[in-house]
Design a protein around this nucleic acid. Structure first.
Length: 286
DNA sequence: CGCGTTTGACCTGCGC
DNA sequence: GCGCAGGTCAAACGCG
């Protein structure tokens, strides 16, 4: 847990002894704000891991069904995170294809930024659709969800449009930074795609200069293999994965990595405990 | 004038 | 059956 807790505790312990000064009240309010932020982030993380578990279970069930009954291969759904200029309010992801916007909708899970719907207009019969929405956690990140596969080439052969996986790739042609490709075999369950699968965590061990960590909480293995086989993709850029947690490893690797991280387990445990013990207090504050 | 965007209306699926 | 939310349509509008 972060270093501000003992300070707040000390002030709280001495509350009865004397009237708190304005400085102490400010410090407490600051701590409360930080704790709320941290709590919020960890709730997202917990929710994302639950979603991931459900998705994995669903995938296993469907794999078992496929083994007995040869279903046709489902349409591919791929999600990218694209870092843009935070001052840029447009929902444009320059990916080498030409898109026609056909709708925009405010969604319940992220009411502050509407979701834009695009169809590929490079080829009249191209079935690919794209949904773009700002990330709820980091407004400078666009979440672009592609459905289907292009039946033609891109204008400039951009890796993003081709669904080639390259984590944290700089799209030099278009001034976008592709943070993370997230792959789904939707199997007709597009409801599995959830913004909660993308989380930026501010490292609690370095509160002076927060380092955002992007978790790729997607299923790897079969789905990503399928993707790599299906496109002329470039290999994973291992060096650029430095801030990503093992983009290509399996779920077990994520769990192993996270459980080995002492800071993470401590923070998660504290957050869960806090969520259990303080829900009424949170409600009162809202 | 043509093309792309905007936006309200409509459709559809899902949960209760 | 009803309500809600996500997705799509299409008329209106703006811009080059």
């Amino acid at each position: 847990m972060s270093s501000y807790c003992p300070v707040a505790l000390e002030i709280l312990m001495n509350m009865d002894a004397h009237t708190p000064t304005k400085r102490e009240v400010d410090a407490l309010q600051q701590d409360l704000l930080l704790l709320r932020k941290e709590n919020e982030t960890l709730r997202f993380l917990l929710q994302a891991m639950t979603t991931k578990c459900n998705t994995l279970e669903q995938l296993i069930r469907e794999k078992n069904i496929q083994r007995h009954d040869q279903f046709p291969v489902a349409q591919k759904t791929t999600q990218f995170l694209v870092r843009t200029d935070s001052k840029d309010n447009t929902l444009i992801v320059k990916d080498g294809y030409q898109w026609r916007k056909y709708g925009q909708k405010v969604t319940k899970d992220n009411p502050s930024s509407p979701r834009a719907y695009f169809k590929c207009s490079l080829s009249p019969r191209c079935p690919v659709k794209k949904k773009v929405q700002r990330c709820m956690v980091d407004k400078s990140v666009l979440v672009a969800t592609y459905e289907g596969e292009h039946n033609h080439d891109a204008i400039n052969g951009s890796p993003l449009g081709k669904f080639c996986c390259s984590s944290s790739t700089a799209d030099h042609n278009n001034n976008n930074i592709i943070i993370n490709p997230i792959n789904y075999a939707s199997h007709g369950t597009s409801a599995n795609i959830n913004n909660n699968d993308v989380i930026n965590i501010v490292s609690p061990s370095n509160s002076s200069r927060p380092v955002p960590i992007t978790l790729d909480l997607t299923l790897s293995g079969s789905t990503s293999n399928q993707q790599n086989n299906g496109s002329a993709g470039s290999p994973q850029n291992s060096s650029s994965c430095a801030q990503n947690i093992n983009c290509e490893s399996r779920l077990e690797d994520y769990v192993a990595y996270l459980t080995k991280d002492h800071n993470f387990t401590q923070t998660l445990a504290a957050a869960v405990a806090s969520s259990i013990t303080r829900p009424s207090a949170d409600r009162q504050n809202q």
